[in-house]
């Protein structure tokens, strides 16, 4: 079977899998961003009651395997009475996992905003909350965007694991095709190419564009 014939036959299945992968990616990204900002800020708190949960969270989700976390959320949580649909368990675990990495990016970026900026904001009497929101975070954003571009590519590739709890994403579809046809090279080859194209031609250009927008906001054109 030629590659063209393969694509014609399994195109719809591949397209539907790719769509699911994209959905999982977008939802996981949303969770990762929220978790990263909350946990990154919490880890910088001077109050240890706020800081401690953030540290524990980051240690657990960054220090253990994403696949194990996925299985925990999908197979173990029901034992405690929390049963999640597989697609939700999928993007939730990928998002929570990448959020732990993201939290460290947020924390690091906030800490690398020059001290003079904190002092100048204090000198005009801004409250700590306003200082963070209006002065520090906008500058931290431009510092953390490039590593976030990396993290989002990691996150996209991480979503392939949700196939293991049979969410019908791209990886799940190609595994099905492979099982039915034994056309391993075509099936997994196409998956490789699609993941690459998504990362290279969607995520990377989007992040570059975002970096330019933020740079313009800082007056560096």
């Amino acid at each position: 079977m030629s590659i063209w014939e393969f694509l014609r036959t399994y195109g719809p299945a591949l397209a539907s899998g790719t769509l699911t992968t994209c959905t999982e990616f977008v939802l996981a990204t949303a969770i990762a961003i929220i978790v990263a900002v909350v946990m990154g800020l919490a880890k910088l708190s001077s109050n240890w009651l706020i800081r401690a949960p953030a540290i524990v969270y980051i240690e657990i989700f960054r220090g253990t395997s994403l696949l194990v976390q996925l299985y925990w959320i999908f197979f173990v949580l029901p034992l405690f009475g929390i049963t999640l649909p597989k697609s939700i368990a999928g993007f939730l675990s990928v998002g929570l996992n990448c959020g732990a990495y993201g939290a460290e990016l947020v924390r690091g970026a906030i800490q690398s905003v020059p001290r003079g900026q904190w002092e100048a904001a204090t000198a005009i009497s801004l409250s700590p909350a306003v200082r963070m929101r209006r002065i520090i975070l906008p500058q931290a954003l431009s510092i953390m965007l490039p590593p976030w571009g990396n993290l989002l590519i990691e996150l996209l590739k991480g979503t392939a694991l949700v196939a293991l709890i049979s969410v019908s994403d791209l990886m799940f579809e190609v595994k099905q095709i492979n099982a039915m046809t034994y056309l391993s090279a075509q099936a997994f080859g196409t998956a490789l190419v699609i993941y690459y194209l998504l990362a290279r031609f969607l995520i990377t250009p989007f992040m570059r564009w975002l970096e330019r927008v933020v740079a313009r906001g800082l007056g560096r054109v």
Partner: peptide, 10 residues
Amino acid sequence: CFQHFNLFPH
């Protein structure tokens, strides 16, 4: 006012 101005760059 500071030695290095510390204006908000954004």
